[in-house]
């Protein structure tokens, strides 16, 4: 991904990317719901699964779109289908990526769009890193990508960042109601963010 992704984003690639993203979330739905049941309302996995099943159904239409439109369309789909707080949060992430992603981006353009999307999620959730949320994975992974790390190293950053939410005390979202009792569990939003980042890194890892 060092050069333009123009040729790397043909419709086959987009189809694989959509499928990978959707399938990894759907495959981990029970795990995400179990994580959420421990410190939240126990619907994260099912909600995300519902959203990505809708995305998956539209794979053909989506993969024919230009990258910015594709990202935006995924965001709109998640916003309308997921529900919960993760619907608007992931919706905002993808819709902002769509708005800021150049049609044929270089790595720098992708990094800027990712940074913009992370900022938009912070604003939407009135949250920041350190509160035991998806931002604790999105922000460091995005920073690792921006500094030019390999994609496998970005995925590793995401994995460690999700792991690092375990000892954190939640101060945002429903887990914050638990106070000290939120300590000792991985944040479900951090885990779903990690899974999606890993899927994207894996898809582009060989290029």
């Amino acid at each position: 991904m060092a050069e333009s992704t123009h040729n790397l984003m043909d419709s086959d690639r987009k189809r694989r990317l959509i499928t990978r993203l959707a399938e990894v979330v759907i495959a981990h739905a029970d795990e995400l719901t179990a994580l959420d049941a421990a410190i939240g309302d126990g619907d994260h996995g099912h909600n995300m699964k519902r959203g990505f099943e809708a995305v998956l159904q539209d794979t053909e239409t989506l993969s024919a779109m230009a990258l910015p439109e594709l990202l935006r369309a995924i965001g709109v789909k998640l916003l309308s289908k997921v529900g919960g707080a993760s619907g608007p949060l992931y919706g905002t992430l993808f819709m902002t990526l769509g708005k800021q992603m150049p049609a044929a981006p270089l790595r720098g353009g992708i990094a800027d769009a990712l940074q913009g999307a992370v900022e938009a999620v912070k604003a939407r959730g009135k949250s920041d890193v350190g509160q035991k949320t998806m931002l604790d994975v999105l922000a460091p992974a995005c920073a690792a990508f921006a500094t030019g790390n390999s994609l496998s190293s970005v995925a590793e950053t995401a994995r460690r960042a999700a792991e690092a939410t375990v000892p954190m005390r939640a101060t945002r979202g429903r887990a914050s109601f638990l106070g000290e009792r939120s300590i000792g569990h991985m944040d479900p939003g951090a885990r779903s963010a990690e899974l999606m980042i890993a899927a994207v890194c894996e898809e582009f890892g060989g290029t």
Binding site: D41, D43, H46, N47, R50, L79, S80, K81, V82, G83, G84, G87, P88, G91
Partner: peptide, 11 residues
């Protein structure tokens, strides 16, 4: 939510 369970729906 959009599936009729507890939750909220943007639409």
């Amino acid at each position: 939510n959009p599936a009729g369970g507890l939750g909220t729906s943007f639409e």
